[in-house]
Design a protein around this nucleic acid. Structure first.
Lengths: 223, 223
DNA sequence: TGTACATCAGTGAACGCGCGTTCACTGATGTAC
DNA sequence: TGTACATCAGTGAACGCGCGTTCACTGATGTAC
């Protein structure tokens, strides 16, 4: 028996047809099951229903496959963040809250991607595509940071880059310490989402956002 | 040739004398070189100059050895943090700054410990000793959080636990994204220490610390 | 102080296993004419 | 529309390797008397 063709009903003859995709999916499945360490080239091939030599037609080695997975991960991550940010609608604070939740949701529902991206020891510069995907995901955070400080005067306005890095680090810290599904998760007296939201609110408060004495009215939604 | 006896001048006969220690040190060395994944029981034994069967006298399996390494790590981590905090002398803000630097310094100078502690997939509850060491290290952060909010009135005082968790998550996020020595480090337009310090300052500002309209005088050090 | 004995800690040989990688190969697909 | 041929993608057998684990064993150490 062979599970080689998961999606679609195409017949699997001598040629697989979409082996590259199948290998990436297999890698994701294996990483999800046993972490980025417990995944081998040979097993990915077996999972795709293909001989152990076949993967070499598509990837130089295990690392190249992993880097590809990480790249896909960053692409999906960037899309999820962009969707959550939704161009800052209806206002930056509301959108930022969604962004934070989307960050944690991604880390939780796509642990395989997340660990390939951040914990597999892959250099973010190991391929131009990976680097680009990485930067594009981070760009969402930067855009959000810029929107948040847009109303501030030059005097009190903090660097957007710094703001973005702080939010990223906090979200990543919470995700990797408390937000994972596996055994390494630490117990927490609240949900990761609550912890992140509270942290970001306090932090923005420290920056003077929302700009309490600014031109725009605060216009808070009820609770 | 055999490097079996690193420290001390004891003779190595049939008995190693301190194999358990030697294996832990070997594991640290191997993890530092190749990450927590690239470390095997057999290689640790070879490193200690001992037959591949010998480690079984001291550890049930690879995971038990890893958990032991993580435990040592948390012990050393807790000590380093406690030393940096120094009971909050001369004041909580100064001590907190040292604490943050000590956190990042540990992650950077002891990457093997750090990854065994946080990235090797070991459950923090996998042994009572590990759990205790873990809690003791976190207790320092909690103590610091309590000292920081000590002067605040019950009205505005935030929960110490939350404060400690936020600082921990931010420090961990920065350490794992930007503070490592290996290839996975991401470039940063400032030092991790500066990023952390700035983040913590903004965060505390958001909480109303230092308590600008409190009873105690601010007493800021120059610069 | 010496001896007998129990316990401890490491030996070394052996096993089965899965991995990474290579190789000449072959079935399938696409394309020029 | 058909045929010849080049290229592509996967085969399957083979290799050397290091790992984890076991086993009966043996040298070293400690202790009772």
């Amino acid at each position: 028996m062979s599970w080689s063709k998961h999606g679609g009903g195409g017949s699997r003859g001598y040629h697989h047809g979409n082996l590259k995709e199948a290998l990436i999916r297999a890698a994701l499945e294996l990483i999800a099951q046993k972490g980025p360490a417990g995944f081998t080239f040979a097993e990915a091939a077996r999972w795709a229903g293909v001989s152990p030599a076949a993967p070499y037609r598509h990837f130089r080695d295990r690392d190249e496959l992993l880097a590809n997975v990480a790249q896909r991960g960053f692409e999906a991550f960037g899309e999820a963040l962009a969707r959550a940010w939704d161009n800052g609608r209806p206002d930056a604070m509301t959108a930022l809250d969604r962004l934070g939740k989307a960050y944690l949701a991604f880390a939780r529902t796509e642990p395989a991607y997340y660990s390939a991206m951040f914990e597999a020891g892959i250099a973010p510069t190991s391929s131009p595509e990976l680097e680009a995907a990485n930067e594009q995901a981070f760009a969402i955070l930067r855009t959000a940071a810029e929107a948040l400080i847009a109303g501030m005067s030059g005097q009190t306005r903090p660097p957007a880059m710094m703001l973005a890095l702080h939010i990223w680090a906090l979200a990543h810290g919470i995700a990797s310490l408390f937000g994972r599904g596996d055994a390494a998760r630490r117990p927490l007296p609240m949900s990761p989402e609550e912890l992140l939201e509270a942290g970001v609110l306090v932090y923005l408060q420290g920056l003077g956002i929302p700009d309490t004495d600014a031109t725009e009215p605060p216009e808070r939604a009820p609770s």
